[in-house]
Every structure is written in C-alpha cells, then in structure tokens.
C-alpha cells in the first residue's frame, strides 16, 4: 500500500507557539527517487534530504522547519514521483496540525 501518504518526519514535534503553522507536508518515502526538486524549489526552504535511505536506495526529503511550511504544495507539483504533497491549514488555532497518518516507508 504505497499509495498511502506517510507522516512527515518531524511530525508531532512541538511547534513554536508564536508561529502559526500554515501547512503540513506528507511524504511517501517508498516512492521517492531523491531528485531534490521539492527541496530546491520549496519557497520557505523547509525541506532537506534525510540522511536515511529508503528501500529504493534514495534519500527522501524530510521536513526540518515545520513551522515554515505554508502548504503551498509546490513540492507536490514538482514531485515527479508523486511522493510528496502539502496541504494548507485554514482557520486553525495555533499548533493544531492534523495528526499525521501512520508512517510507512518513511525514514525513521
């Protein structure tokens, strides 16, 4: 079931209360081929290569600055492997990003 998007690494980390979280990123580590498009073209630069390998032998991205994600989904548009996308959070109080679905294939 690699169709299921997986939790962004870093999900569940405490979020700085003063910064409003506006987006959440879902990464399917099983599909990623490590091209780096999402990392390079993320406007707020919230993604980096993970040091871990996925089963295909590539380094998928992980979210290093969750508070910076705007949910613009450019990562989702750029991804040639349909392995990442972002969702904008609307009208949410601070620090209530939706609980991420269970992780699968994501680097630990």
């Amino acid at each position: 079931m690699d169709a299921e998007p997986t939790a962004p690494p870093g999900a569940g980390q405490p979020v700085e209360k003063t910064r409003r979280v506006r987006g959440v990123v879902y990464i399917n580590g099983l599909r990623c081929k490590g091209c780096g498009f999402c990392i390079a073209f993320c406007p707020p630069k919230v993604l980096e290569f993970s040091s871990e390998f996925n089963p295909l032998g590539y380094h998928p991205p992980h979210l290093v600055r969750p508070e910076g994600c705007t949910g613009c989904d450019l990562c989702g548009l750029y991804c040639p492997d349909f392995a990442i996308y972002a969702v904008m959070i609307k009208n949410e109080p601070e620090d209530t990003r939706p609980p991420a679905p269970p992780a699968e294939g994501a680097p630990p």
Binding site: P5, Y26, Y85, V87, P99, A100, P101
Partner: peptide, 8 residues
Amino acid sequence: TDAVAANP
C-alpha cells in the same frame, strides 16, 4: 486527516 491523507 483522512480527507487530506491521499495525494490529490
């Protein structure tokens, strides 16, 4: 969460 869990 379910609603957004699938890549569009």
